Computed example of a mutant assay.
Amino acid sequence: MSKEARVGAIARAVQELQDATDQIDELAARRLGINRTDLRCLSRLTARGSLTASELAAAAGLTGGAATTAIDRLERAGLARRIRDESDRRRVLVHLTDRAHEVGEQIWGPIVTDASAELHRFTTAELDVIERFLHRALDNQTRHADRLRSQGPHR
């Protein structure tokens, strides 16, 4: 297979992976009784730990108001709670609840287990390449999300 054909095959595989991930996210949001924005906030809290509302807004690419609304919905769903920071009483942190951790494990635990088993099949050198590709792909996606955000809505 030529290099161009290999690049095309990888690009198609990445698109298929993104679509499959999107499908999992949709099903997970439905199961949790939340919307996709709320799920994105849940994901950021899972990945980064407790955050202030403004930190969560930045991490999820939301305005402050949209993040506050999402946090309110996550609290009503029993997935997050606001707790005053004990080291700085002026700060309020958004924490995941035990329920969020439990349902997260039910939904994503098997996916993580299977993915980990697959990754263990690669050599260390292959894992280095995969990790480098994923970092570059993330940088690319982040850069283009910023570009699209700065352009505003299409008219």
Rank of each mutant, 00 (worst) to 15 (best):
A70S: 14
R44A: 07
N35D: 15
A60Y: 03
S50A: 11
I34S: 04
A60L: 03
T68S: 15
A11Q: 12
A9E: 10
D19N: 14
L32E: 02
R31T: 11
L42T: 04
S43E: 11
G49W: 02
A70H: 06
R36T: 12
I34F: 03
I24R: 07
Q18M: 15
D19F: 14
T68K: 15
T37G: 06
L27F: 08
L56F: 04
A11W: 08
G64T: 13
A67Q: 08
T63V: 09
T46H: 07
R12Q: 15
T46W: 01
Q15D: 15
L45I: 00
R73D: 10
E75Q: 12
G33N: 04
R36G: 11
C41I: 05
R36F: 08
A66M: 08
E26F: 02
T69I: 15
D22P: 03
S54C: 06
R44Y: 01
L51K: 00
S54R: 12
L17H: 13
G78L: 02
I34Y: 05
G61L: 08
V14R: 10
R12G: 14
A28D: 03
E16D: 14
R73T: 11
A66C: 09
A70K: 05
G65K: 11
L32S: 03
T52G: 09
A67N: 03
D72P: 05
S54F: 09
A58T: 09
A60H: 03
G61R: 09
A9C: 00
L62M: 05
R44V: 02
R31N: 10
R44N: 04
S50T: 01
G33R: 04
A28K: 01
V14Y: 09
R30G: 13
R12H: 14
G33C: 05
A66E: 14
A58W: 02
A28R: 01
D22I: 08
T68R: 14
R12V: 14
T52Q: 08
T69L: 15
T46I: 00
L56G: 02
A11P: 06
A77H: 05
R31K: 15
L27Q: 14
D22K: 11
D25R: 09
L51R: 00
R30W: 09
A77K: 04
R36E: 14
A70T: 07
T37C: 06
R40E: 11
R48C: 00
